[in-house]
Design a protein around this nucleic acid. Structure first.
Lengths: 326, 326
DNA sequence: CGCGTTTACGTCGTTCGTAACGATA
DNA sequence: TATCGTTACGAACGACGTAAACGCG
């Protein structure tokens, strides 16, 4: 059993059991992988794959088990290499974020730009994903960091770090009846209007939907989109009243009016979620410090390493953070 | 970075930084280890050890970190090998238990004998240890299984499986005043008498001591010993009244009388504690089934693998288990 | 016939053990 | 001088890539 054999095993599993493809991905030749897998099977004493003719059809049950442990083993190898890179002061590398469009578009840009200024040789990969799939991506997709919002609940997978609190806002065209009002609309008023909001509001567990349910009011979703720009466009077009994250609106949109959302819509929290037990590269820590300066980096390392229990400070409100833009 | 390099690293760390000794333990030559460590240091780009002249003095701080991950990595390698051995139906291997003398002497013998009958080629190593050190041993000593008692609290490290409940008994010479009484002694009565009990009763967190403290009664520990046989001997010699685990007394000790302990002494639970995430060999599961037939082996595997939350059945009382000895 | 896997073969690199050397207490 | 680590050398093994053969759709 060698590190390479295990590396080949997971590469093949991750390439849909196509050895040739796996070989390209690990920068080796196909016969090399075939042989190493065979040798591994010989050493372990059982087949990792079921074969039909010459090609692989599935992993055996035992193979699935081996794969789980092989992944963990290789993760630890990667941890050692990350540790070493930090120790050497290595300033280049990769960083993969998995997050929603809203975070990627309105929350992360400054932080990522600052990190890139500090670490110009780091390649940052932004991996947009659906709300519900992000944590699964983080757990199984090898991403380094997820950024995700919830209305209060602490995300389960990995180490969740609260970044900031935020609220929704109501967006209407400047000619809209609500735009002339001095007081923000109530939930009952919104209930009577067609809404334009995020795709995720369609889900029954969406906090927007739950707020209406709790008040026993109907919710009219006129349309949904993945990102705020589209929502704004359709609000401008008069399709309905926009409900979106406050991070997604800027004060200079003169043809739109931004109103406070009803108090019944709960405050949300944006979290960074880190894979538990993974050694963070210095630049990952730098990025986290950019988006959450209130978090102590030493503590963070300790918690991710499993050597301390999380005890994070109360996250600040987004509008406090951005009251005085530079 | 190879598995062997990491293996050598931990061997050296576990041999007090004596490379020659480490080389013997891993069945290799000393120059081999020296070179591999040097190569590993080259690859990682920093020193793992601080050196004074030619010999190693300490691990560097970075080396300590690498060591942690190297251990986990090798644990996963061991897991894969264990998985393979199970899959092959391999019936030989090693099994190291760490436990107290009482468990080893009075609880485990039947179960171990049964396991040895089923797996004659398995070498079982019994590793007696002090109450307080057992869990540390399990976490760092590479033992497969700990058996330990507490008065209620769930042991923290690893996966704790409740095996059975038990009570203490009071042991007096047949000529003792208490032996003629029909009702068992109360805590207040015992408080007036010199006691002979386990070494661990000296600790402030001992449940015996806490029972006296709670009743605000003094406890007179005339003497303590590690094992029940010694306690019995000194009870026979009239040194004091024995307080010991019910598992440690048999009905055929005609010169001693066994009395119920006061109700104030809480019931205890004996637990098996397993290292979390370690793949269990079939014979380990067999042994566990012998000492805790109420535990479902499939569930147990799942919980140890981290794929399920523990939900163990209420453990039976020792005296129920042994009411009708074969 | 093309795609993907296996088998055969030669080369290269690496690891290992032996043996000699060096430093230290 | 004994102990422990390093350096030097040669042999053996193993992994890799190339090229050809084999099955299957």
């Amino acid at each position: 059993m060698t590190l390479n054999q295990l590396r080949y095993l997971v590469a093949i599993a991750d390439s849909g059991l196509n050895i040739t493809l796996a070989a390209e991905r690990v920068h080796a030749t196909q016969p090399g992988l075939s042989r190493q897998i065979k040798q591994l099977e010989d050493e372990l004493g059982f087949l990792l794959f079921t074969r039909k003719g010459r090609s692989l059809t599935t992993l055996t049950q035992a193979g699935e088990h081996v794969l789980v442990h092989a992944r963990r083993l290789l993760d630890e190898a990667a941890n050692i290499r990350a540790l070493a890179a930090n120790q050497r002061g290595e300033r280049k590398g990769k960083l993969t974020l998995v997050t929603t469009h809203t975070q990627a578009r309105h929350v992360l840009p400054e932080a990522i730009a600052a990190t890139r200024r500090e670490f110009p040789a780091v390649s940052i990969r932004l991996h947009p994903s659906d709300e519900g799939e992000i944590l699964a991506q983080l757990a199984h997709g090898g991403d380094d960091l997820a950024v995700i919002s919830t209305s209060g609940a602490v995300p389960g997978a990995g180490v969740a770090v609260p970044l900031f609190r935020w609220r929704r806002v109501v967006l209407v065209p400047s000619g809209h009846a609500l735009a002339r009002r001095t007081r923000p609309p109530g939930l009952r008023e919104l209930s009577a209007l067609p809404l334009v909001s995020y795709e995720s509001s369609r889900k029954p567990e969406s906090s927007l939907r739950r707020a209406f349910d709790k008040a026993e009011l109907p919710m009219q979703l006129a349309m949904t989109a993945h990102d705020a720009d589209l929502i704004k466009t359709y609000v401008r077009a008069g399709v309905g009243v926009g409900i979106l994250a406050e991070m997604a609106v800027s004060p200079d949109e003169s043809d739109l009016r931004v109103l406070e959302a009803p108090a019944e819509l709960p405050e949300c929290i944006t979290w960074a979620v880190l894979p538990r037990g993974r050694v963070l590269r210095d630049y990952a820590l730098h990025l986290l410090h950019e988006i959450a300066p209130q978090i102590d980096s030493i503590d963070l390392r300790r918690v991710v390493a499993g050597n301390a229990e999380p005890a994070w400070p109360e996250p600040p409100a987004w509008r406090e953070l951005h009251r005085v833009p530079a």
